[in-house]
Amino acid sequence: MRADLEIIEKWIQPQSHVLDLGCGDGTLLDYLQREKQATGFGLEINPDHITTCMGRGVSVIEQDLDIQGLGNFQDRSFDVVLMTQALQAVRRPDIVLDEMLRLGRECIVTFPNFAYWRLRWYLMRRGRMPESETLPYKWYNTPNIHLCTFKDFEALCYRKNIHIMNRTVVDSEHRYRWFNRLWPNMLGQIAIYRITR
């Protein structure tokens, strides 16, 4: 299993009702169903991923967050709402966060840190939009239309009265490194936040 999913999995109680926004091929939900008797749904738009989910018994709904929103889900209807590596790709991350917190008691969000020192150095040295293994796109074709830094995200949480329960900062391979704790906004590549209201 992907390393970030291993971290997330520890934050989810057995028998939780889970909504996974952008669930991919359903790896995490499949694991949670089998190992933690969790229930719930994944939202996905990639047709191949949707088929894979259906074939492995993960409940998946074809739904585009940017077009359809989450209005079809009821308030407080999930224990946990997840979104891994997709916040930076939605049209309005702030509204999506509000919606996630409307549906779930807790939310788990992961996204890449645009203030990572290599990206800063790339921009400073070349004067071009940074590209990296985590962000392997050109400025004009990137799905990541709302990149932010850890500080940006935390400022948004502060403004919205969102309580940050846990934060884990890892490298692009989702490994803990001692220096990530030292200066996360400079040295961390990916953050995994557990938030509530």
Partner: peptide, 11 residues
């Protein structure tokens, strides 16, 4: 979904 049934959907 509201009734928490297991359902998959595609258009």
């Amino acid at each position: 979904i509201a009734a928490r049934r297991k359902v998959s959907y595609a258009e």
